[in-house]
Write a protein that binds this DNA or RNA. Sequence first.
RNA 1: GGCGCUAUCGUCUAGGGGUUAGGACGUGAGAUUCUCAAUCUCAAAACCCGGGUUCGAUUCCCGGUAGCGCUACCA
Length: 510
Amino acid sequence: MSEVRVRFAPSPTGYLHVGNARTALFNWLFARHKQGAFVLRIEDTDVERSKTEHEAQLLEDLRWFGLDWDEGPDRPGPFGPYRQSERKELYAQHATHLIDAGHAYFCFCTAEQLEAERQEAVKAGRQPMYSGRCRQRPREESARKVAEGQPASIRLKIEGGSFAWNDLVHGLTTFSSDVIGDFILVRSDGNPAYNYAVVIDDRLMEISHVIRGDDHISNTPRQLALYQAFGWEPPQFAHLSTILGPDRARLSKRHGATSLQNFRDMGILPEALGNYLALLGWSPHDGVTEILTVADLVAQFSLDRITKSPAVFDQEKLNWMNRHYLKESPLRRLAQMAVPFLAGVGYLPIEAGASDPSGLRGGATEPLLQWLERIVDAVLKNLDRLDQLPEAARLIFEYDARRTADEVMTPDDRAASADVLAAFIPPVLAEPGLTYTRFREIAKGVQKQTGKKGRELFHPIRVAVTGAVSGPELEKLIPIFEEGAKLSLAPPIKSTARRLREFAEAAKLF
RNA sequence: GGCGCUAUCGUCUAGGGGUUAGGACGUGAGAUUCUCAAUCUCAAAACCCGGGUUCGAUUCCCGGUAGCGCUACCA
């Protein structure tokens, strides 16, 4: 068993937390770095939380994140099945084995009894721990009660002085066995408890390294007790620190975006999220490099460079990293990703049940995609994430001449720039197909005529044409207006000339 | 309460018995551009506290404090 085998074992709750995503990522990086196997196991024995329909969503989230697995529910391997719900027979067999060997016993205590004992212990200031009342019952008696149909859970006998392991992140970690009660292996309804199922699964799947959140540190001695009872060699453990919110409390839904789906909806690129998460609790050897490709991460990853301390999730830094990857991304990819964001605010015509995967009426045609590339190229520098695209591109899709003339352009501005506008607008209106080159020539003419240049010249033009005091370069915007107008979209894109005509009218210029 | 884990700029981190304690995000200033942004340059900003060990501790040890976790027939 020298081969490295790691696993990620999520519950399909329909919500994959970034903390879990980071755990999955670290497992995956370690497996790929060691050229071992990455196993995906679904922990779906808890029917309350697990919904089978959520499993597909989970796999989809993981794939979007860029992870793949060698074995899993959709990729059968030699250690299947990979859903806990399909492994109940295995858990039952091993529990029987433990009882026969005298390491486990049936417990007939009711929930009420246990709760009462617990309350008492707390009141008396003692450690609330199972008393072990059913431990001494003769095996024959227990067997008889079970045969009679009395509900029973199965508990493990905890013995021995202490449990210790050499944690790959934290180093030597020790627990006294005094603080661990005889815990439940199999619940009275026949379902295995987490600490039991996880040991059976990890052992049977020949997992070599268990990499998981540090909220499991206190569970580890229990699991060690099980390995001991079975006479099994335990795997290596590595416990990852918690991800916290800005208030230093464990990152949760009330902090805002915390699921993979949330980040996807924000227009965060998977490679940006992966790079960011990899740096949350891990750093490369040089201690300087921050931008790392997946290949870099796989090549450099090592468990001994993982931080022990918890980390506060910083959306600002994620945004920065996303901006970096956005700029590196091919325009075509971004144009395609832009469609749902623009369609979502009504800038592009969507159609329910459209045959095209983009969901657009008429489909995402080549001319449309080329035009979207221009838009993305123009506004990219202003974006942290794609969900800011509608706002950044608004001046392309919306132009209100009335508002521009009355509000955006102040009376002072208008008075000061009357000569520029008077010289600029007529030649543009007379131009059939405006290009940026032509626009430049006209602007030059205005400069000669009015003697104004730079900001004095371009600001009034910008405002009149875009309806905004700031935005992308006119060099990029003019072609977008012109090309957009030709696309006959619904709602339509107004050409430069049309904008100026409306503006002149609203401002009563001529 | 008990047990456990953690502690370097606001945040993510590098480092390590002697360093000008390094990088990044964010922040501030400047440069540049028709504007915003982007970009570039510069700046401010940290070793939790108290004991020990040592010639010397931010680094090693102990204690305190704080934060977090576990203490379930949740996972």
